[in-house]
Design a protein around this nucleic acid. Sequence first.
RNA 1: GCCCGGGUGGCGGAAUUGGUAGACGCAGCAGACUCAAAAUCUGCCGUUCGCAAGGAUGUGCUGGUUCGAUUCCAGUCCCGGGCACCA
Length: 1120
Amino acid sequence: MKLNFANIEQEVKKLWAVKNIYRVENKSDKPKYYVLEMFPYPSGAGLHVGHPLGYIASDIYARYKRHKGFNVLHPMGYDAFGLPAEQYAIETGQHPAVTTEKNIARYREQLDKIGLSYDWSREFKTSDPKYYKWTQWIFLQIFNSWYNPETNKAEHISTLISKFETIGCSIKNQKSKIENSFSAAEWKSFSEKQQADILMQFRLAYLADAEVNWCEALGTVLANDEVVNGVSERGGHPVVKKKMRQWFLRITEYADRLLQGLETLDWSEPMKEMQRNWIGRSEGASIRFDLTPTLSKGEGAIQSPSNTEPYGYETTDAKTFEALKPIARELRKNQTETEEIIWEAVRNNQLGFKIRRQHAIEKFIVDFVCIEKKLVIEIDGEVHLKQKEEDAIRTEALNLAGFKVIRFTNEEVKNNLQVVIQKIKTALQSEATTPSPLERGQGVRSNEAGTSFNLSNGVRSVEVFTTRPDTIFGCSFMVVAPENDLVNQITTAEQKAEIEKYVAYVKSRSDLERMAEKKITGCFTGAFALHPFTQKPLPIYVSEYVLNGYGTGAIMAVPAGDSRDYAFATHFEIDKPNIFEGIDIAEKCYEEKTATLCNSDFLNGMDYKTATQKILQEIKAKNIGQRKINFRMRDAGFSRQRYWGEPFPIYYENGIAKTLPENELPLALPHVASYSPGPEGQGPLANIKEWTDKNLETNTMPGYAGSSWYFLRYMSPQEDKAFVNEEAMKYWGAVDFYNGGSEHAVGHLLYSRMWTKVLHDLGFINFDEPFKKMVNQGMIQGISMMVRNIPSISFDGGIYNPDSNKVENIISVFIDKGFLEKLPVDDILIHIPIDFAEFNGGKYYLTKEKLQELKNTHPRFGNVNFLTKEICSKLGIEAFEISEDKVELLPVVEKMSKSKYNVVNPDDMIAQYGADTFRMYEMFLGPIELSKPWDTKGIEGVSRFLRKFWNLFFTEDKLTLSDAEPTNEELKILHQTIKKIDADIQKLAYNTCVSQFMICVNELQAMKCNKRSILEPLLVLLNPFAPFITEYLWKEIGNKNSVIDAPFPTHDEKYLVENSFSYPIAINGKTRINMEFALDADAKDIETTVLADATIQKFMEGKPMKKFIFVKGRMINVVV
RNA sequence: GCCCGGGUGGCGGAAUUGGUAGACGCAGCAGACUCAAAAUCUGCCGUUCGCAAGGAUGUGCUGGUUCGAUUCCAGUCCCGGGCACCA
């Protein structure tokens, strides 16, 4: 009978459906096993052949585990919120819910064809309100928690509040993010807003300012993906960094636990390594370097009376403040009409910054001030001369105190409030800021993090983080990150212009560009700091190689011990003091930790360890720093100014973020008329009146919100009382086997680990790592066909005519490589659809016929032609031999994507070859963890294999199985195969499994084996790979149950024993001949026999034998 | 730039982790069957010298360790992924 896979698939699918074979119960006598693969984002392009790679791999494992007697949970769902659906909505006006639904239906249809053993009754999508109700609910739990450093876990915020109510808050004892300690009594005296602001500094989900990609022209925030070369992908408009109020998850509190937790996980070492590097724990010290007196003017800092901390944000001294307080209060009650207008427009962080009114600064009470931005806003009354003079003095004094002053008249405010607010906004954005916790580097453990300074006295010192405090005597300069606020404050008048130029240059560059920059760039600020031990002045530079988000955003540069510092010092001709005994640093620096220190005062003669201990003691004693653990990881931004995501169950009341009651969840996404951004660049929700009337949060959650906990939902997808049913959670526990692309190695995995830990800390689940075993699949890449095109004769342009110096004729020209040198232009490579390429003699071509077809079917290529003699002459190039029939294409291996026209659809493969062949071929391509290009050509081999396998069961059109006793040879190949398949499935080496199946079937075919005792176990072995054909044959040969419930065969070594081995015999490592010896033969006898052999004698060329190497069962080597 | 992974025939890859490099498959070549084609089967198939027997050479590149290196070490080049708002 001929193998008809289409019929078989039909029939087997029916059988599966009738018996509901993949339905999994939440209880069983069998041990549980949870297999999960990263669920897909349902894109409009449908699945391509790369997606199923991981699904098939997991499916094989899930089926294998089931054969091995486990109750296997193997679910699938959709990560359905995301940017592409929204972009599509913007372009076409179709609601993302509609397109997503359509895409999901298509995905499901495609997935169903592959024969995956999913329990589809557990399917869900993250964009379903029934699902995101619980995403919102979990967010509320995170919002309502803080990280208690004493218990080292998350706790409900109420435990923090009761602490404040009973003992207050001491920054010495707490890992506090706030500037000042307060007593219990003070806490109780704070307003609701003040209390809320303080609690916000502790919540695991909190609001803070962060920079976003802002595109003024589009009036919207752009994802990194949408920014190309500094301009928006859509339209090519400029993109700048802009601060916005955003939600964050305080994942940094979990840094240590995320790091330690890795040790307990069965993940590949590179994966763990990537996470370790992302978390980036480093031990070192924070050290304060005082600035030279010329800058701080020696005025000294105001100290808080209770401790040695400076008053971070105090704007005047205590005495003056007390004196001015009643006046300020009075003034607030009696605001002028104009002041009232402004106040209404700026209060409650409306402009993204806290603005205070009638506030004491130095000896003045100013109308409005943004302390954070050091900006004073004054409203001028009637203008007369005396007033003008007074205002000038006031402005100067405020300027001296470090404040910028902007003034508006009553008329301006009344007549054109918009303009006034815009001016304030501009001023707020351009002015210096005090570092927010974010800018200071969230990973910083100590409350003394950040560059410290005092408002009324200017900057006092620069604080650095270093991992090598032992090298401090090698420090010859300092570097501050360009975006660090310190820059504005310490730069001298002479250097101001140059620094501004440099900072502007850096701002125009993306982070990636900055990081990838090889060239050394930087600029001197004019300021100097004092070396804390030698008192030598150290010049302070600004350079892009110092990142503001890491450590304190400032470093002590040690050229002798750090390559970037070394390169910088060389470039700017800065002194490079050598501090390593016996090491020459004339050519390059020394980054190892093994040298002895010299030229280092009290550290001389010490090694790394001793010196580090010593210097830490010294800086502690001098009170200029301390040991510190720093993390590279930052808190996770959790807001998106988008529509298609989970709405936050948050509303605002008097500027305080408040939670919606649980019974109002889910807060459903409302329908919107358009997907354009809100008036201030907020998400589209800001355009809905009913939404803003309720003061609901207008941001939505990011893509990873839903995927951070989805693995829990599969356990009890219908549960409506909780995010997961407790019993189900206890039964299934953590995922045993998780599979997904390595491109998710950090982001998704870290966030879901964090969520799991939070849920665990709060007592909702009884495990704190989500994925016990993690497997990364490589990508299936596409082969793209690139054609060379000349840009000066481009799609949108025309032919450049040197005579008229104009571009004429709209035409595009594809050329061959050979013409390149002859043409006075550069080419660019353009993708053309892969199905238009013709393969001939090892090369790919685009023929004239195919070009015509391309032009007809793809309007984008409508104007394309091959280079002709005519065009050459128009370009003023001498005509040369041109083939006007075809051009050579350049095959390039890259990501499969619609825009690259290189997508291969699994449906086509399955229609042509069948699902089993498709599954096996995907596995046959190579190890799953490696990326490899898809090439349909090889699929024939697997297809042939399955036909051969099928034919073992049939003679002519009849199923003919024999019940005869198997021969030893037959048993041997069967048991070899069982052994290999069992071992290789566990190793996930599926490609070698397929090879072994082929070897096995080739041998059985040669033996003409049709014995049930051989073929029946083979059906079970092959089932995980080819579920359709095996299920069908299993039934055909008379079994009642599904093959999936048959136990996995076990191999018996007795069929595999060999008693002799053909040894390769090498002379000096070069294999010359093979000789057969019994495996139990005596080594001495073998040696005698080998040496007596004529061929061996010939190759030994009469030289005496030095050594005889005999490895039993492997090889023999004669050394002469 | 930094972190992770990978470079083996024309192509995908294998090699029991230091022991016969190229299993298995694709493509190619030759043959059988056939009126013919498809399908199927058999043989050959890294490069190079040689009619052959056989020899030399060969796992990105340069060195090192070893009786022996695709495998271990040092350096270097190239490709892929990630770098915090694509998913």
